[in-house]
Design a protein around this nucleic acid. Structure first.
Lengths: 200, 200
DNA sequence: TGACCCGTGGTACGGTCGCACCACATCAGG
DNA sequence: CCTGATGTGGTGCGACCGTACCACGGGTCA
């Protein structure tokens, strides 16, 4: 084998350019030439590493998803062993809010892709799984919390989980549009958690 | 004046073509030629009635907003005089869900525009007002309901309003992506309303 | 050392884009 | 009856699009 190059690194470098352009002007602005310029490589390389434009869009999304999962796992681990169910649920929900630049941009990218999710089966598959998994995760945590007495016994954990995740997603949009400051979104989540959990 | 034509009608006809294309493939697919074909008019007419592409996008959005407000008002009036605060709040929130084709498509169009809202000040202005007004409307209804004894006295009406609107918006996304059936979204809203209102 | 393949650049082509421009009906007012 | 604004169609232009294709440096293995 001749000259070795870190393919994953190159792909990531290109994917990041895709994200930046998508957050600025939507998928419209994600042209091969623009991505190449933004990534500082020749347009030919995009073809080499991703193939067609559709594959580039899909590839960039997959890398984003992988990143999101890794970062989320990191942040949850940061809570330490046995952080309590409330802190865990809170951590999961806050992952949906654009509380730092990384999450801000990530959610912006998802929005740019949104309409495509409906039309393109390959993209849709990559996007449909995550949120439902999140909902089930929260539902599981709430059920566990109810068994431990941390969650009020009358709570319908499945419904509450779906509602909490949806609310977090809605708050995300408001923060992105600058209609709420991030702290208010967090406060609103905490308020609802106060209604669900027994700990005062 | 020579040959008279209903400008508003023509503009609406063209705007509807914009919406259809935007819901199918995002703003990428909203090209002048495609819109002209979809609307069954010549491309030249788009220039005549809207000017540049940016103006077309803005104009189509404004017509959509006007429609949305009119339809919402209609549906609320359908509730009759003195429908009770809970029914009113419910009506406002359900307006945010894609419960019929009209609302489904409308929200899809908003999503297609979303990223643009952040970059284009003119579009952003048209989009930023509505949701905050909605939140204030709900907050007012809740406060009034609390005075009437329909809302539990311990409810923070402003926070609850913000949370409810955000949740409705989040549920909207889930329904659009087909992750929840519309009835489940309604049920989740009703469940939360049950926690807020005394009537049960 | 020569064959070979990986990684990279450049470029060319057919197509579509937004938009400006020109031509021409139609019909009200002088 | 003609003048001129209104409404409509067509066409052309320069730019940019996605992508296929060609060329080539450089490192690896026989």
């Amino acid at each position: 084998m001749p000259r070795q190059v870190d393919h994953d690194l190159r792909r990531r470098q290109i994917a990041e350019a895709v994200w930046r352009l998508a957050t600025r002007g939507g998928l419209e602005d994600v042209t091969l030439r623009q991505v190449a310029t933004e990534a500082g490589v020749s347009a030919r390389l995009l073809q080499y590493y991703f193939g067609t434009r559709d594959q580039l869009l899909l590839g960039a999304l997959e890398i984003l998803n992988a990143d999101a999962e890794r970062r989320a796992r990191q942040r949850l681990e940061l809570l330490g062993d046995d952080p309590g169910m409330r802190a865990l649920v809170r951590g999961v929900l806050l992952e949906l809010l654009p509380l730092d630049e990384e999450r801000h941009n990530r959610h912006l990218v998802y929005v740019a892709y949104f309409v495509r999710f409906l039309a393109d089966p390959a993209l849709g598959a990559a996007a449909r799984e995550a949120p439902l998994a999140l909902e089930n995760l929260v539902a599981g945590l709430l059920t566990r919390g109810r068994e431990l007495g941390e969650v009020r016994p009358e709570v319908d954990t499945e419904a509450e989980a779906a509602f909490l995740v949806a609310a977090a997603e809605g708050l995300q949009s408001r923060v992105l549009l600058g209609q709420h400051p991030p702290e208010r979104a967090v406060a609103l989540i905490d308020r609802q958690l106060g209604l669900v959990f027994t700990s005062g």
